[in-house]
């Protein structure tokens, strides 16, 4: 059951994946599978991390793999991360690709639409 961490919805024509709570090595595998199943048909994906209260390296690995796979399939994706907070900190510390990070959903969606 991954419902406590993930909610799926649509934002414009993009698939919106909202993550919340703590994402660590205990649940990242399960979360990853749920997301992959859902976004298989989507051309555009937004992953909202603004309510994530903890993100560890396993979480980073998951996001890294997701972004990489989507790019390989020619799909566009953006991560929405607050300007500060645990998720931003972890991603920054890992030197995650800045070009896929946005601070708000509208701008991220606009980026995808271009």
């Amino acid at each position: 059951m991954t419902d406590q961490w993930i909610t799926f919805s649509k934002f414009g024509d993009a698939e919106l994946v909202r993550l919340s709570g703590e994402i660590d090595m205990a649940n990242s595998g399960e979360i990853g599978r749920a997301i992959v199943n859902r976004i298989r048909e989507s051309g555009k994906v937004l992953i909202d991390l603004t309510t994530v209260s903890f993100l560890d390296s396993a979480g980073v690995r998951l996001l890294d793999a997701l972004i990489g796979d989507l790019a390989a399939q020619g799909k566009r994706a953006r991560l929405v991360v607050g300007e500060r907070g645990p998720a931003r900190m972890t991603l920054q510390l890992c030197a995650f690709r800045e070009d896929v990070l946005e601070t708000d959903l509208d701008r991220a969606a606009a980026e995808l639409g271009r």
Binding site: F54, L55, D56, A58, G85, M89, T90
Partner: peptide, 16 residues
């Protein structure tokens, strides 16, 4: 908060 989040992350990673 900044320090707290950093300590939690490092501690988590060390345990992992």
């Amino acid at each position: 908060p900044e320090t707290r989040d950093a300590v939690l992350l490092a501690c988590s990673e060390a345990v992992a």
